[in-house]
Design a protein around this nucleic acid. Structure first.
Lengths: 126, 126
DNA sequence: CGCTAAATGATAGCCTGCTATCAAACCCGT
DNA sequence: ACGGGTTTGATAGCAGGCTATCATTTAGCG
């Protein structure tokens, strides 16, 4: 059976507090604040379990390792900052993707990725 | 200076005739029809040159090797068939991404990826 | 407590996509 | 047709992200 370990708690805490999707390495860094000495293997193991348990959802970005965010009900998309590499959730999906789908194709889902510079990076590098 | 070789011509022909973005391995397969015995290294070399020359544009898909399509003027997006893995260009971008951008962020570009099953795969696997 | 199965950390290994290397083949101006 | 620099094909090597392995530590039931 599943045990409640210091490490897994630290990982869940890190993801919950971040408020944005984190990569495995970001998770490791944040979680080490609560549980020093944690190894990367533990992060990968915990992430796999949490995804299987529907507590985490992967956020895929081309050419980047996946980020993971705590699952939420609302439909939303993401913003990728090319300066710091951080990913943020954004609201307001402009639906209307049926019309884009070619005749005869079955549309099952869609992804929107915004790219640019986040507010924090705009300040530091104007 | 740049020579006009059978292989590079075959690669350009394959990409031009495909009418959709191709991965390096797809390019290799198609180009071998025109130039048997071609090696994968030649494909990677040609693709790099053609991208630099603005004749090809990469199409990035999370967790997949990039596809490459002949550059075109119109703004468009892509459809990924989960059955055959082929990528297709689609029209009708639902603009309106300013409204999605968080306050203070600078939006520079956006990507829309539709996922589902293409017409051909719908027929063969209903 | 004491025990046992679960979890951890370190690290070697795997996988995939891509690049470097180099001898052989080829393009093309002369 | 010649010759020299370009291109090619084969393959070894690299990089990054992830998984497997295994001795050690630990949670938590009894």
């Amino acid at each position: 059976m599943q045990r409640r370990t210091q490490q897994r708690e630290a990982i869940k805490k890190a993801l919950g507090e971040a408020g944005r999707p984190l990569s495995p390495h970001e998770i490791l860094e944040e979680a080490r604040a609560h549980s020093p000495g944690m190894g990367i293997a533990t992060v990968y193991r915990a992430v796999k379990q949490l995804v299987d348990a529907d507590w985490l959802a992967p956020v895929e970005i081309p050419g980047e390792p996946p980020r993971y965010e705590v699952v939420r009900q609302d439909h939303h998309h993401h913003f990728y900052c090319r300066e710091c590499g951080r990913v943020f959730a954004v609201q307001h999906c402009p639906g209307d993707f049926r019309r884009m789908t070619p005749r005869g194709f079955r549309l099952e889902s869609h992804e929107v990725l915004l790219r640019g510079v986040c507010a924090e990076c705009r300040k530091s590098t104007p």
